[in-house]
Design a protein around this nucleic acid. Structure first.
Length: 521
DNA sequence: TATGAACGCGCATTGAGCGA
DNA sequence: TCGCTCAATGCGCGTTCATA
């Protein structure tokens, strides 16, 4: 068994995931897809590694030719090829791989320093590598990642390794102005002092192989619960009524219930609700509230509180929604790494017409989308502020931290709109809170307050028939359009699909508002 | 009067849930 | 992946109170 870097990191994070990695590749893949949400973030936009390569322009970069590695002896062959590049004293070696009898590591960049030894450069597509706490400790996962690499390089490179380990990541202060200079957007930080000792690594390595060679039954005996009970179901979708689906339940409480052999929501007793699931002081927590409501029946509506909240909404109402793009290397002017850019919006305006004596509602729709080749969203924000009528209304969104966050950024970029955007934020109502505060509770929402879960229960609107049916697809397509990759009929159809998708999002919010009004009437 | 258990307060940290 | 918000909990520290 070769212990690779990713296996080592997995083993420390979640031994069970590592077990599947070695013994059941299919399940391992399934679990990973589940954990990462199935969205392929790495595949779009210019990669950070390309930008790092530009950083080394002027130096000789050796690429390891891995085309004909074969399968059986691939680690050894990789090692031989990489050692050759080292012997030729290349300035920079990209994606070298080194193996001992048991360990294998693939490095991002090895860079020759003035002493003619090699520094390790691990590239991360991240804005920060340290926790936001007092000591600014290096993120755990990065510690294990780089520590393992250092350990293997010590064993394999000998005197050619400088023992200097750098993390190479994105400068979150960077803002794009025209062509990006790699020096400005890439940061390199020496992290050798933050790493694990060789002793610590060896202690872990001593157990990895034997643990991962256990039968599943024996493995589960040794690791009965390891943090995420998703694995408890052996890679299968857990039963719908698993305790993992109790809203707001924290890991410790899940573990406590699991150890008391309470796997399903129906196993939970009154004592559990008053004990484990309640706050430390015995008061109602989110999870005990969820359980209490669930016991009352399929649907529970706090009509009075909802009425009170909806009464604060003053016409005209603007239901609006953004689509954004965000990439490690920004594609829009004035944006930073992973900055979110509003590239599309949809607004449904509802006004009350009192002229005929009986109040009637007038609904109008407006939208806007990025043009091919556009490198700033000024046009879109200008139009937005006009369509939202400069803040003179009530604004309804789902999950207001997202839209309001974007508005704050826009007001910094375009000070001329700051006043309007601040007014919009101040007059924003978050439709999601009716569900996240469990004022409108329905078992069929499947423990979520996301509008996408609420929608099929309350309305007959469906995303199944749409060409673009989720935010991830939308982001990819919007990137293609902005980059000018699409032309002619393909471009035309993509724009139509995106506009349809975004319009449906705001129309869905309007429908939910209407349905709730009927229910509480 | 010295001591330590118990309490309460504010700040810091962590984690769930959400969006793209 | 990132960043935001909110809830829950942890931590430090000073105050209070019972007791020897």
């Amino acid at each position: 068994m070769f212990i690779t870097k990713s296996l080592f990191v997995e083993y420390i994070n979640s031994p069970k995931l590592a077990w599947y990695h070695v013994n059941d590749k299919k399940t391992h893949k399934k679990i990973q897809e589940h954990v990462h949400g199935g969205m392929d973030w790495a595949a779009i936009g210019q990669s950070v590694e390309d930008m790092v390569r530009k950083l080394y322009a002027g130096k000789t970069i050796a690429d390891i030719d891995t085309k004909n590695l074969g399968f059986k002896a691939r680690h050894k062959t990789y090692h031989t090829l990489s050692s050759k590049a080292l012997d030729q004293n290349a300035d920079v070696i990209y994606q070298a791989g080194f193996a001992t009898d048991k360990l294998f590591v693939k490095t991002d960049f090895l860079v020759k320093n003035e002493l003619w030894t090699y520094d390790l450069m691990e590239v991360k597509s991240k804005n920060s590598i340290r926790s936001n706490n007092k000591d600014h400790t290096l993120v755990d996962e990065l510690v294990t990642d780089v520590s393992f690499q250092k350990y293997v390089l010590e064993k394999t490179l000998g005197a050619k390794f400088s023992w200097n380990c750098y993390l190479v990541y994105l400068n979150k202060e960077f803002r794009k102005h025209g062509e990006i200079n790699p020096q400005d957007i890439i940061l390199q930080e020496l992290v050798t002092d933050d790493l694990m000792t060789d002793d610590a690594i060896e202690r872990i390595l001593a157990t990895v192989e034997s643990d991962l060679s256990l039968s599943l039954a024996d493995f589960n005996k040794k690791f009965p619960y390891d943090g995420s009970d998703y694995f408890t179901y052996f890679g299968e979708e857990p039963p719908k009524k698993s305790i993992r689906n109790i809203t707001g339940i924290v890991q410790d409480k899940k573990k406590e219930l699991y150890e008391a052999k309470k796997i399903l929501i129906d196993d939970i007793t009154d004592e559990d609700i008053l004990g484990i699931l309640s706050n430390k002081d015995g008061g109602e927590s989110r999870s005990s509230k969820f359980m209490n409501l669930r016991r009352q029946g399929e649907t529970t509506i706090d009509k009075e509180e909802i009425k009170k909240r909806l009464a604060t909404l003053k016409f005209p109402l603007f239901f609006y929604d953004y689509e954004t793009v965000s990439f490690p290397i920004p594609t829009f002017e004035w944006l930073g790494p992973r900055g979110q850019t509003v590239v599309q919006y949809s607004v449904h305006k509802i006004d009350e017409d009192l002229s005929t004596g009986t109040p009637t509602l007038i609904i109008t729709h407006k939208d806007c989308i990025v043009n091919p080749g556009e490198t700033s969203n000024k046009r879109i924000i200008d139009q937005l502020v006009t369509d939202l009528e400069h803040g003179n209304g009530t604004y309804i969104v789902r999950n207001k931290s997202f839209e309001c966050g974007r508005n704050k950024e826009s007001s910094l970029l375009y000070p001329e709109h700051a006043e309007a955007l601040e007014k919009i934020n101040a007059n924003t109502f978050d439709l999601m809170t009716l569900f996240s505060d469990m004022l409108y509770f329905d078992r069929r929402f499947l423990w979520s307050s996301s509008i996408k879960k609420v929608l099929p229960v309350l309305t007959d609107i469906s995303y199944d028939t749409l060409e673009v049916g989720n935010g991830g697809d939308a982001m990819k397509l919007l990137y293609e359009i902005q980059q000018g990759h699409l032309t002619g009929a393909e471009l035309e159809q993509s724009v139509i699909n995106l506009l349809t998708y975004c319009e449906q999002d705001t129309r869905a919010m309007v429908r939910i508002w209407e349905v709730i009004k009927e229910k509480i009437a």
